[in-house]
């Protein structure tokens, strides 16, 4: 069953067209990877799907679990089960990670018609999830991402994902700024969430992340369009040959 269906999606940022007709379908149970060079539109696609202001869709459609995704507010998209792991997680001084996770989880549960978790149930849940990601009690209590290293921020994204249990997770360059150990921990966290009813869209520049999160399908994004689709071997091919085939010379 298709979870996300994008058809002929065009989007502009500050009047400049970045996405020039994306067609993409992600099914439940599958991990899709989007690989592309800098400036190909990778982050724009993830922000358009999450509903960030300033990204204007000029043409095309995006359907998520049968709903018109583009008509929804960011919080409605999250409540419907869409999760964007940010390339640059935002620091929020004064709001503790615990409060943040609790507000987020209870808001999402409310939309699903479920009651809020009480303090004990909630703490038990996040402690268990945090332990999976080697996160300390201190990291859970501290203000959201404040004073976190790059690796800790990405682990925090993975924690949020594990707590919110989305139907579709979009990972925007989750590997950027991570050393190999941090990458492994985050990837393990993500892999734990692979399930037959969950889809994933892993956006990355390099093949490295895909050694740990092995995709079912790989797409190449360049010049605002999907240029090629293949199996996981396509990622290795790109790693060897670069994006030159798609008219991109990154060495320049």
């Amino acid at each position: 069953m298709s979870l996300l269906e994008i058809k002929n999606l065009h989007a502009t940022v500050d009047g400049k067209e970045i996405l020039k007709g994306i067609d993409l379908t992600v099914e439940a149970g599958k991990v899709h990877a989007i690989m592309g060079p800098n400036g190909s539109g990778k982050s724009t696609l993830s922000y358009v799907l999450a509903g960030r202001e300033g990204y204007e869709v000029t043409e095309g459609t995006a359907t998520f679990a049968g709903q018109d995704l583009l008509a929804m507010e960011p919080e409605e998209r999250a409540a419907a089960g869409l999760f964007l792991a940010f390339q640059y997680p935002v620091e929020i001084p004064g709001v503790s990670n615990t409060t943040f996770l609790k507000e987020a989880l209870n808001a999402v549960r409310k939309t699903r018609g479920e009651g809020p978790l009480d303090a004990m149930q909630f703490l038990k849940l996040i402690r268990a999830r945090a332990k999976d990601l080697n996160m300390t009690e201190d990291m859970i209590k501290r203000a959201v991402n404040v004073g976190f290293s790059g690796g800790e921020k990405k682990r925090n994204e993975a924690l949020q994902m594990a707590v919110l249990q989305p139907r579709l997770a979009i990972l925007d360059e989750t590997d950027s700024g991570l050393d190999i150990d941090a990458l492994r921990i985050v990837a393990e966290g993500v892999n734990k969430l692979r399930s037959p009813d969950r889809g994933m869209l892993v956006i990355t520049h390099y093949q490295r992340l895909l050694d740990y999160i092995v995709p079912d399908v790989v797409h190449v994004l360049a010049h605002g369009r999907i240029q090629k689709t293949g199996g996981k071997e396509l990622a290795q091919e790109l790693e060897a040959k670069g994006y030159a085939e798609f008219g991109v010379n990154e060495a320049a």
Partner: peptide, 8 residues
């Protein structure tokens, strides 16, 4: 946006 993207 970060808070809203988490469903708040």
């Amino acid at each position: 946006f970060y808070l809203r993207a988490r469903g708040i």
